[in-house]
């Protein structure tokens, strides 16, 4: 992965401005590079706020729903590593109950099962 892009993602991960979530979503999760998508998804999970977690849980083709198993598993591992799982559990509940896509609902249910272990 490009070193400068990696540094930018790291900077956006710790950035206090919520606009950083928008940049990570637009430029990171939509990237054609698997490594960039993986790093971006992990960055969004690390932020551990509603808007960032929503991106990697409810969007098809992003985060835990990414077509790349590496990206999806890496995102799930990061979710499992969170100390405070309150917000992620809340979003998973809503996704399981209300999302229109069955695949997304199943993925969310799987992650919730893993968190319960």
């Amino acid at each position: 992965m490009n070193k400068k892009i990696s540094q930018i993602i790291d900077a956006l991960t710790t950035h206090q401005d919520n606009d950083s979530i928008r940049v990570l979503e637009n430029l990171g999760t939509n990237s054609s590079d698997n490594d960039i998508r993986e790093k971006t998804s992990r960055a969004l999970v690390k932020k551990n706020v509603h808007d960032s977690l929503k991106v990697v849980i409810i969007n098809e083709g992003k985060g835990i729903n990414d077509l790349s198993p590496v990206v999806a598993m890496s995102t799930i591992n990061e979710i499992l590593a969170l100390k405070d799982k309150t917000e992620v559990l809340h979003i998973l509940e809503d996704t399981i109950n209300m999302h229109s896509s069955e695949t997304v609902r199943e993925n969310a249910a799987s992650v919730k099962s893993l968190l319960a272990l």
């Binding site: 490009n2 400068k4 892009i5 930018i8 900077a11 956006l12 950035h15 206090q16 401005d17 430029l27």
Partner: peptide, 19 residues
Amino acid sequence: KISDKMPVVDLEAAWINEN
């Protein structure tokens, strides 16, 4: 030096430039 002290807009511009 890229850091979280930079404005998000600048970081975004730098990322686009790198792409």
